[in-house]
């Protein structure tokens, strides 16, 4: 179980990540703010408690951002950890910079190129299988978007992960309930329930509040089986910014200078 201090430290880190992302939003338009804010706590949890600060050996756990469009959230964490330099992030999406709007394999801390949805899970299945073949105990952590579950390829990978008995695969679903076109429940009512579908593909499945790392951690260690593990994390798109929360248009939109100021206040005061 996490200590109170660990939880409050995480909340503080996430505050500073939200501010840094907002700051970047004033320099470039190419941002997916809503979906980045929804997965920040999950991401912070994975990095802080499961990914070593410096890659030491081939047995280290790794992380794959399958919802590549939210990689700005990954970048600010990698910056805080010293994996990405401030100067590099300052050049995000700018000519001469190496960090783009989607993760690029070969960049520091980036284990796979994603951005086209429905690719990350199969890549993770392959990596987990390679770890099994090489008798290496490391785990692979993945964050999927809920929209990504509409890709058939995601279900192929879900099926194969179970077939290959990959207990070293842990998948977090950033279930923020909205996507580019609108609110998922309105656009695709038969998409729900999610949990039963994943369970029926032979994954151990739990549901958790994706903004509470204490709860995430508890569920993580209450795992009961050796099946691949799926955590449906209920989250809020645009979490932390009053005018963004649960507004699908903030999937891909940049705040005005006034909205930026308001956003900083929201983050500081905790809405």
């Amino acid at each position: 179980m996490l200590l109170k201090k660990q939880i409050s430290d995480s909340l503080n880190r996430c505050k500073s990540y939200r501010k840094r992302i907002l700051e970047i939003s004033q320099q470039v338009f190419a941002l997916h703010l809503g979906g980045s804010y929804s997965c920040l706590e999950i991401l912070d949890y994975i990095y802080e408690f499961h990914i070593p600060l410096r890659k030491k050996n081939k047995n280290d756990n790794i992380f794959i951002m399958s919802k590549g469009h939210s990689c700005i959230a990954q970048y600010v964490i990698l910056e805080n950890r010293g994996v990405i330099k401030k100067k590099e992030l300052d050049h995000y999406c700018k000519a001469g910079g190496k960090l783009g709007c989607h993760p690029d394999y070969g960049n520091p801390g980036i284990e796979a190129s994603t951005g086209s949805l429905g690719h990350g899970l199969a890549l993770a299945v392959g990596i987990c299988k390679a770890n099994k073949i090489k008798k290496n105990n490391s785990k692979v952590f993945v964050i999927l978007s809920d929209g990504e579950l509409q890709e058939g390829s995601t279900w192929e990978a879900l099926m194969m992960a179970a077939n290959l008995e990959l207990d070293n695969l842990i998948c977090f679903l950033d279930h923020n309930g909205s996507q580019s076109y609108g609110v998922t429940r309105d656009e695709h009512p038969k998409f729900y329930p999610i949990s039963n579908k994943i369970k029926s593909f032979n994954w151990e499945t739990v549901t958790v509040d994706g903004h509470k790392i204490g709860e995430i951690d508890k569920k993580f260690y209450q795992r009961k089986t050796k099946k691949p593990f799926f955590l449906i994390c209920n989250t809020i798109k645009g979490k932390g910014i009053s005018y963004m929360e649960n507004k699908p248009e903030w999937h891909y939109k940049s705040p005005t200078p006034e909205q930026y100021t308001q956003g900083l206040l929201d983050i500081e005061n905790g809405i």
């Binding site: 199969a122 890549l123 392959g126 990596i127 390679a130 073949i133 990978a157």
Partner: peptide, 11 residues
């Protein structure tokens, strides 16, 4: 996709 994952681990 799985083949790519295997190759990412040196296979």
């Amino acid at each position: 996709g799985i083949a790519a994952g295997l190759a990412l681990k040196g296979m």
